[in-house]
Amino acid sequence: MSMLLKIVSDVLIAVGAFFALVGVIGILRMPDTFCRMQASTCVSTLGVVGVTLGGLIHALFVAETPMAGAAVKIVVIGLLILVTSPVGAHAIAKGAYKAGIRPDKPMETDDLGRDSE
């Protein structure tokens, strides 16, 4: 049983690391500011969820003595990142747009630009 849980926790951590890697590749490859922010969301969602869930299972079931304190802190860390990161993303995206940053290639549709004129 503990072997199975160890495999589950390792797989979750690997999945989280994979999505974090995808997010970083996306940040490097995407053409403009806003698209880069989109790619970075991968890191702060499945990246964080995968790693924290894997760590949680490890702390509760795989470690030789279950670490309740560590488990609780992992949950709090995961929740805090999930609650705060979208707020930061709104603020950065809106700030970048207001500061006049636009992609080199014009966007398909720009309803915000049209309505704020």
């Binding site: 922010m37 989109q38 969301t41 990161s85 979208p86 709104h90 915000l112």
Partner: peptide, 11 residues
């Protein structure tokens, strides 16, 4: 909407 990759609410 912001948390799903691919969409960010701006306003």
């Amino acid at each position: 909407i912001t948390l799903t990759p691919g969409t960010i609410t701006m306003e």
